[in-house]
Design a protein around this nucleic acid. Structure first.
Lengths: 156, 156
DNA sequence: AAAGATTGAGCGGTCAATCTTA
DNA sequence: TAAGATTGACCGCTCAATCTTT
């Protein structure tokens, strides 16, 4: 939605405003990632993969889908999957319907790690974001961001 | 600010809400970085350094300060500085007052590149964020994020 | 042709060690 | 001692090439 006001916003103000968003986001993300890594030993990308698999209700998910989800290249993700498999957190399964794709599923150990990591993550989120902003402001921010991506706002 | 409502927010809702913020932020950042890189040839970290130097009104800035600003390790930033200097965009200057520190200053070419990159960046910001949200919502989001970091809201 | 997965080469970052100056 | 900068070893990711399957 463009309003006549938009032209009143100088490039400098625009950048300063966005920069404070960058700072906040970066600080929260770094803190959460550090906490998860410290308390579970899971590096950032691995955590995101486990979280996504858990969110898929234990269904097998193609490696390519996971790669897109964490914004990794295909080749880069192969190695993430290698590490996760070697750590016993996921298992590779050739897809029954399309023999090009390999799926990943959580092992019991992987699911347990995912639960622990998500507990740490959400606790940090409560402390860092929810307590500072309150639920209404947080929801408002999320729905703004959803407008940017064109996604449906969360909770619909 | 903690309200009684906070306990009504399940871990799942909390994470979903934050995730949509992550998605929006990531999409905008990636798009802007790609645009800047495509139209100026500057990779992301270099762009941030030039932008910060420009914002310092052409003053000499210690490398350690710049490193903190872009959240790089000391060793990592030395190599960024190497590339920027080799590209003729910055110049190293030993600090007159403290002989441990080396300062960086923009060369004329570096300043020119910084201007171009910032023009691309702010144009993208207008299109991707300002037009979708409007100025008021953008300012609101920035001031929320400032509360998280404890910084003063932008424009004060 | 086109899409998924894997491999190896290359690069950009962190980390630990070192040197210099305060 | 401590802080800033640099160096080299290491590691994780991207990229391009390859193989397989559709």
């Amino acid at each position: 939605m463009t309003t006549p006001q938009d032209e009143d916003c100088s490039a400098d103000e625009l950048i300063n405003t966005w920069t404070s968003i960058v700072r906040g986001y970066t600080q929260v993300t770094r803190t959460l990632t550090d906490q998860v890594e410290r308390e579970t030993g899971l590096p950032g990308p691995c955590f995101l993969v486990l979280a996504w698999l858990r969110r898929s209700s234990d269904q097998a998910v193609p490696l390519s889908t996971l790669a897109r989800q964490v914004a990794f290249s295909s080749g880069g993700f192969t190695k993430v999957a290698d590490r996760l498999e070697q750590a016993g957190l996921i298992q590779r399964q050739p897809s029954p319907c399309d023999r090009r794709v390999t799926n990943a599923v959580l092992t019991p150990a992987g699911r347990e790690q995912a639960e622990r990591a998500l507990a740490v993550y959400s606790a940090g989120l409560r402390e860092l974001v929810l307590q500072q902003l309150g639920l209404d402001a947080l929801r408002a921010m999320a729905s703004q961001m959803s407008r940017i991506t064109g996604d449906a706002p969360p909770g619909d």
